[in-house]
């Protein structure tokens, strides 16, 4: 049953999703493209692009992957699998949280996770570039996006729209 497989894969992924769904991109690619062969590289980057252009939490890329693999049931299974384990954990933990707050081990984990998340997100970016087999025009867009996003306060949505329009021209 592909829906069960989807559920189990994403439930497993949810336990290592430090930094949210964005940090999971490389591992989702490894699972759904390289190991399960549920889709090809191009489709993976397309789904990522659609998630970028849609409103909502970052976790929706998981919904799209689930949809592509097994329709509505797949979308629901993947999304619930991604959200449920840690939602249950936090539901049970929250009342005890005050007791842990400021504990040395807790600070240590927060400090230790941060550089790992940076590496994961950087990996996600290189992976999208690789999977989409970017040419010079696409790399130009990547570079311009990085510069504009870091140096100005322009809302990313405008960049996404602009990227779509440039893409429509067929140059990318």
């Amino acid at each position: 049953m592909i829906v069960v497989a989807l559920f189990l894969e994403f439930a497993l992924l949810s336990f290592v999703a430090f930094g949210g769904a964005t940090a999971l991109l490389p591992e989702m690619h490894r699972v759904v493209v390289e190991s399960r062969h549920w889709m090809d590289d191009a489709t993976f980057t397309h789904l990522y692009a659609i998630a970028q252009g849609a409103p909502g939490p970052n976790v929706l890329v998981v919904t799209l992957i689930g949809w592509h693999v097994a329709g509505l049931a797949g979308a629901l299974a993947a999304t619930v699998a991604m959200c449920l384990p840690m939602s249950v954990a936090i539901y049970l933990l929250i009342d005890r949280w005050e007791g842990f707050a400021g504990a040395r081990w807790q600070k240590a984990i927060s400090l230790g996770v941060a550089p790992l998340a940076v590496g994961l997100i950087f990996s996600g970016a290189t992976l999208i570039a690789q999977a989409a087999a970017f040419g010079w025009a696409a790399w130009l867009i990547v570079g311009a996006t990085v510069l504009v996003n870091l140096k100005t306060k322009l809302h990313p949505l405008w960049l996404i729209v602009l990227g779509g329009v440039v893409g429509l021209s067929g140059w990318v």
């Binding site: 991109l25 941060a114 970016a125 990085v146 996003n149 870091l150 990227g163 779509g164 140059w171």
Partner: peptide, 30 residues
């Protein structure tokens, strides 16, 4: 082809946003 071109353009922007995000998070590390 039109849809694929558009999605490639958006993916390139998305890729750039990820690099920028990694950069910003890296700067914030103590």
């Amino acid at each position: 082809p039109l849809a694929q071109g558009m999605l490639r353009g958006v993916a390139a922007v998305g890729c750039g946003l990820l690099f920028a995000m990694a950069w910003r998070m890296g700067l914030a590390i103590k």
